[in-house]
Design a protein around this nucleic acid. Structure first.
Lengths: 352, 352
DNA sequence: CCTTAGCACTCTCTTTGCACGAGTGCTAAC
DNA sequence: GTTAGCACTCGTGCAAAGAGAGTGCTAAGG
């Protein structure tokens, strides 16, 4: 894994150049354009070495070299210099987050849009997982006969609702009584806890207080179901995309077949979600080419960062592009945006 | 506009053939394949006439003919025979709608998916416009200090919520009192009415009942804002897509540039929404090529149908494809799906 | 007068050959 | 260890040639 200084410089030059131009890089070009202090012939020798070691590839016998996945990996791990974003760019991003957005999914969706606009790649953002969020408030509102709306509010101010069936024999007073008891007992627990153990515990207890055993049990069962759906829908399903067509600007996707393959993948929320979930718990994760678990993404790299609510990691934001991606820029952008998003998602609570 | 019988048959044959194969249609092919009873030479003469009249076009001097927009229009208006869907297909669609889905936007989203799967084109579905829906129930729930959640339920059982700021000086009792009064007054009015005139009317009245003039006014103002957003977000923004990549299977979009153009358009929710709104108030609408108001869609046709809640038209479902689209099949599919969707959206209410 | 066969013509698409340019690997000299 | 030189390979662009499909027109036939 150890390359001498010159090999590193050459590899770096090749990757930089290829990222910028998408053209295989030749020795003469390198010698001219980068100040390596050696002749093309020497560079050729070094390139032959690098190829043998697996860092470079040659599309055909007499063309320049392009980085292999391994080459990109080395570049990302050891050669990447993250230059700060231009002030202008940072300001632009901050500005986007000036205006306060109430609804969390709108905020997430906007984030996807911003990422894709700033990076000119496709962005992939996972909606927040709510299962670890703590319940602040729960309300059962009767709606017509046999239906009620459950409204859940968590400590971060995220609101969700869901319609459930309730036994028609229960009165409005009973319902609000039930709501009251549940609130006293469940506030401050995570939604996951609420859903599983607590609901059962409460179930047992409530049947003591109230005379209509069966009805209450029915309601609770419905509630558990609804919460399950709510949590699940957010955690397991929602993936927001931005700039999906940006991918078509990349020369590696000029080929319709390749384009279709990757665009189809983007329609598969479930697969995407999985790809996004397999990440390191914090910091920036970079997956290059075949490092991605999905075969369709073997020409792509994905860079992701995490975001938090209440200091707890709840989801990730990411960028999908060709392996020939501007890693440095994207990493910086994701850092800045994650910071903004964190702030904006917590400001909801700071207000209180 | 009047073509003799033979010209009609020839035009129909050409459109059918071109829809099926995407290849320009020549006279020999027509004579052989369709039972027109005349020789290729005669067909050539007729085709020359049809071209002169504007129903056909010739990609280049010595190729077969393809239908012009006008040709498709004639075909759609006078020659289209809508054959019923295969039982199997109908059953398949009905099956999709067997399982009951509570949340309306999920149902709409699923509909988009179904349409695209059945037709193999891209589907475009407009979320329901809520402004004409009648309010069934409204609730203000205090959440933390300074915030409250407004929950709106309409007669069709559609639930929406929104977080609003409220003056911190107001008590929970006052809030529930306010809720009660509002419910009495506003139930049964359309959301649009609630939003505009009634809110003001109520505003005036309430200031009599309650002693804190300013506070109440603040709340109402917030509510109006929230409702505005709610209505607007549904009516003006939400467009659900299905099978966007299906468009890439069409030979006319092999060209990356064209593909990108149309896919970019699909990302522009606002433009799309507008395109969908300009439709006849009921029945099926077909827009062919340049009949579409958006220049990007001049190679495309769009077929749309309306759907209803409570017998009131609230949105539309549609298919976007090349002008060379299987009009007959799509029209049938949309009819069946609209019917299913209507039923499923009203069943929410039938239950009561 | 309408229909049809025949034919010359047009245009696209594919193939072929060829020259060019970019880039390499290798060898020999520095 | 570095470099210049050279032969070699491969992709690309271009022009010419040929095949194929389809037309429009003309003249003959019903």
């Amino acid at each position: 894994m150890s390359l001498d200084e010159r090999k590193k410089r050459i590899l770096q030059a090749i990757v930089d150049s290829y990222i910028a131009s998408a053209e295989p890089v030749g020795s003469r070009f390198l010698a001219r354009r980068y100040d390596l202090g050696v002749s093309p012939a020497t560079i050729r020798n070094e390139m032959a070495d690098l190829e043998e070691m697996g860092y470079l590839e040659q599309p055909h016998t007499s063309s320049g070299r392009i980085p292999s996945d391994k080459g990109y990996r080395f570049y990302v791990d050891f050669l990447l210099d993250i230059h700060l974003l231009a002030d202008q760019e940072i300001r632009r991003i901050n500005q986007w987050y000036q205006s306060r957005v109430r609804e969390i999914d709108l905020q997430i969706q906007r984030t996807a849009k911003i990422i894709s606009q700033v990076t000119q790649y496709t962005s992939v953002v996972m909606g927040p997982s709510l299962s670890e969020q703590k319940l602040n408030y729960l309300q059962l509102l009767p709606v017509g006969a046999g239906s009620a709306v459950v409204v859940l509010v968590d400590e971060a101010g995220i609101v969700e609702h869901r319609t459930v069936d309730i036994p028609s024999g229960i009165s409005e007073e009973e319902l609000s009584g039930l709501t009251k008891i549940m609130n006293e007992r469940l506030k401050g627990r995570t939604l996951e806890e609420v859903k599983t153990s607590l609901m059962r515990e409460l179930n047992a207890e409530l049947t003591g207080y109230m005379d209509r055993y069966q009805l209450v049990q029915d309601i609770i069962e419905q509630l558990v179901l609804a919460m399950d759906e709510t949590i699940w829908e957010n955690q397991e399903e929602k993936v927001y995309l931005g700039g999906t067509t940006n991918i078509l600007n990349q020369p590696e996707f000029r080929n319709i077949e390749k384009a279709r393959q990757i665009l189809s993948l983007l329609e598969e929320e479930r697969a995407l979600h999985q790809a996004l979930s397999e990440l390191a718990p914090e910091g920036i994760t970079i997956r290059i080419g075949k490092e991605n678990s999905l075969a369709e993404m073997s020409n792509c790299s994905m860079i992701t960062a995490r975001y938090e609510i209440e200091g707890k990691t709840v989801g990730s934001i990411g960028v999908l592009g060709p392996t020939r991606m501007d890693y440095s820029h994207v990493v910086s952008v994701l850092n800045v945006i994650a910071k903004n998003l964190n702030r904006s998602l917590s400001s909801k609570r700071d207000k209180e």
